[in-house]
Design a protein around this nucleic acid. Sequence first.
DNA 1: GTCTATAGGAGGATAGAC
DNA 2: GTCTATCCTCCTATAGAC
Lengths: 210, 210
Amino acid sequence: MTGTTPTKVSFKAQMLLAREDAIIQSVNRLLADKGFEAMTVDEVAADVGIAKASLYKHFPSKEDLACAAMVSVMRRAQVFLDNLPTESSPVDKLRSVVQWTMGLKLAGEMPSLPSQNSSLRTKLMSSKDYMDGLMDVSDRLGAWIETAQAQGALNPQLPSIAVLYTLYARACDPVLEFLKMGELFTHDQIIALVLSTCFEGLETRHRQDQ
Amino acid sequence: MTGTTPTKVSFKAQMLLAREDAIIQSVNRLLADKGFEAMTVDEVAADVGIAKASLYKHFPSKEDLACAAMVSVMRRAQVFLDNLPTESSPVDKLRSVVQWTMGLKLAGEMPSLPSQNSSLRTKLMSSKDYMDGLMDVSDRLGAWIETAQAQGALNPQLPSIAVLYTLYARACDPVLEFLKMGELFTHDQIIALVLSTCFEGLETRHRQDQ
DNA sequence: GTCTATAGGAGGATAGAC
DNA sequence: GTCTATCCTCCTATAGAC
C-alpha cells in the first residue's frame, strides 16, 4: 500500500517511540526537580540533547510535553496496582501504593502537579489518556477504601472521598522533602515516618491499635 | 533636629505604613489565589489602585513584596500563639494552631510557599524578619510537641522534628482545596475532617483513643 | 511619591534550510 | 526530523516628567 515494507515502518516507528520515551524521561526528571513553571523547554532540549525545534516536532507545546510525562507516571501506577498481591488486605494495598509513590518522590521521579490552577491542569483535564488513567486508579483505590472502612480497618466516619484525596496528597507530601533536606534519616526511615503519620496519625495509639 | 514637628513626621509615616499595609493585603490575597510565579506586579498595582512604578518605590522587587506578605502572616501567627488560653493542653494548642491556619487557607488568606526552590525561598531565607518569626514559632510549637510526647498524648516514637514538619505541611494541605472544590462540605466540616486525619490518622481508633 | 512610557530579558513557539 | 536563527509576547524593573 505505501511502498515500504512493514518491517521498515515498524523500525522507524520504534525509533520514534524510543526517542519520545527519552524525552519523557527527561521531562519527568525536570518536572520532579523544578516543577512545571520553572522548567524551560530549552532545558528539556539540552537534557535530551536535541534542538528545541525538534522537540516541537514531537510535542506541540510545553503543556503537551508535561502531560505526556504525567500520563507515563499514571501508567506506571496502573501497572503497580495490577501487580499487587491479591492476598493482601485492602489497607495493606493502600499502604503499599502510598509507600511506592513516596519512594518515587524521594527518588526524584515524581512530577508534582501545581496545586494552583495553571495551564497544565487545564491541559490534563482535557486529556483523555490522563483522565482515563486517573479515573481507573481512583476507582480501584476507592473500592479498597470502602472495603477497608466496611471491615473497620479504616475509620468509617471519614467520607471515602476525603480518604482518597488524603492518599493522593500524602503521595506528594512536602514533609518528604523537608526530612530529606535535613539528612537525619534514610529514605526508608522517612517513608516509614510519613506512612505512620498518615495512617496512624500524630496522637498516641494504645493497645491493639498497634 | 529635622525642622519638622514630631506630629507631622508621625502623620506622614502613618500614611506610608497604611499604604504599605494596603499593598501587603493585596499581595497576600493574590499570593494565596495564584501563587508567587503566577502573580504579576501589574496585577498587584491594579489591585491596590496605584501605578506599578509607585509599587517599586515601596518595595524594591517582587520578591520583597511577597516577603513582606509572608512576614505579615508570620506576625499574625505569633499573635495567635500569644493569645492561646494558657490552661489548654499542648495538644489542644497544636490543634488550635493547625485549625486556625486551615481556616486562613480556606478563606484565601494563606499565601502558600512554592515547595520547589525559587527566588522567593532564597529571599525568605535571607530575610531576618521572616527567619526570626519562623524560628520563634517553631520553638514554641516544638516545645508543645515535646511536652505532649512526654505526656504520651502525641506518639513519642515520632521524631519531634517530623511532627513539626507535618503540622506545617497540614496547615497548607491541598486536601483542603480538593474538598472545597467538591462543594460537598462546609468549611468547618472540611477543617474537622483534615484535622482528624492529621491527628488521629486514617485507621480506626478503638475505645479510649477517642 | 505618583504617574506614563519604555528598556531589557526570558522563554515559548516558528521559519526555512538541509 | 533535525538543525540555526529569529519572532513575539509577557513580565520585571527603571527613566524621567510633574
